[in-house]
Amino acid sequence: MSELQVEAETAAATVGGAWLLVLSSVFLCNLLKILLPSCSSIISKLLQKDAEQEYQMRSEIQNMKQELATISMMDEFARYARLERKINKMTDKLKTHVKTRTAQLAKIKWVINIVFYILQAALMISLIWKYYSEPVTVLPSKWLAPLERLVAFPTGVAGGVGITCWLVVCNKVVAIMLHPFS
């Protein structure tokens, strides 16, 4: 009995704040997942510098339209037609520009999402790798009876809380906590 206690104490000493580390990682991942759409839009805004050019084009078109409204079509047909052609050309250019930008935006968002999920997977795998053989926290084994083996999986330490069990629990709890914000 005393041997078991000593074992548990040493295990607890080695793990330290592993449970907190796993919990904070899960929390951060979930929080980032919620903030991902706004994050990706901010990043895409930073990466795309064509917005200013687009704005200029828009204002230019607006000006030209105002000018067109002042010209009489009957009296100055040639000028009117020239200006109208110019407006049409500019509008077409703007449309192509917007289309390209939207496609680029979707691509950036997709890349950000993919990168996020890859990082999350890498983080989870590294956590599992690190705590594969040692428990994230240790309790007296009789507290967890009769599920101590299940809770300790895959460590096999009696009374230990394994990484898989703790990850599942943390994910569930963090999802419940963040549900009102999502």
Binding site: W19, L139, V169, K172, V173, I176
Partner: peptide, 16 residues
């Protein structure tokens, strides 16, 4: 299962 997760989490949290 959700209840169990919350229960277990709170227990571990209090214990720690």
């Amino acid at each position: 299962f959700t209840d169990l997760c919350v229960y277990f989490f709170t227990f571990i949290f209090c214990h720690e």
